[in-house]
Structure formats: structure tokens, C-alpha cells
């Protein structure tokens, strides 16, 4: 089984720019997250991964 941890980012490293489609609950509409935009707007980002919607903790 491949060891995903070895190929991944480490703390202190630069995160490559990426974009993800989003749902924006405050607008009730779809949107987009862009790390490049965050950098342009000088915003911090907290990415919060979880296994799946409709789970429990």
C-alpha cells in the first residue's frame, strides 16, 4: 500500500495553488475557493478535511 504521508506537504512548506468548487451556506449558492485569491487578499486559510457529509463527529 502506498504511504501517502511521505509524498505529502510538510509544515513550513509552500502549498501549491489550488481551486475547489464550494457550496456557500451564507449565500445559499455555489462558489469557488482559490488559494491564489487568498494570497492576493492576504487572508489566512484553515482547511478542515473530513471523511464524508452525513457523518457524526
Amino acid at each position: 500500500m502506498p504511504d501517502t504521508a511521505t509524498a505529502s506537504l510538510r509544515v513550513g512548506q509552500q502549498v501549491p495553488d489550488f481551486e475547489l468548487e464550494t457550496y456557500e451556506p451564507t449565500k445559499g449558492d455555489f462558489g469557488k475557493f482559490s488559494l491564489a485569491e487568498q494570497k492576493k487578499n492576504k487572508r489566512w486559510t484553515i482547511l478542515f478535511f473530513y471523511p464524508a457529509d452525513f457523518t457524526f463527529v
Binding site: L9, R10, V11, G12, Q13, Q14, V15, D17, L35, Q38, K39, K42, R43, W44, T45, I46, L47, F48, F49, Y50, P51, A52, V57
Partner: peptide, 17 residues
């Protein structure tokens, strides 16, 4: 699936936590 990972990225795009 993804594990429960939390990552803090600073305004320069660097992973801090």
C-alpha cells in the same frame, strides 16, 4: 476517504500547522 485533518495556511501560502 479523507481522515480528519486540519491545516493552517498563512497569507503567503505557507503551511503553518
Amino acid at each position: 476517504l479523507a481522515l480528519r485533518g486540519t491545516f493552517l495556511i498563512n497569507p503567503e501560502g505557507r503551511l503553518m500547522n
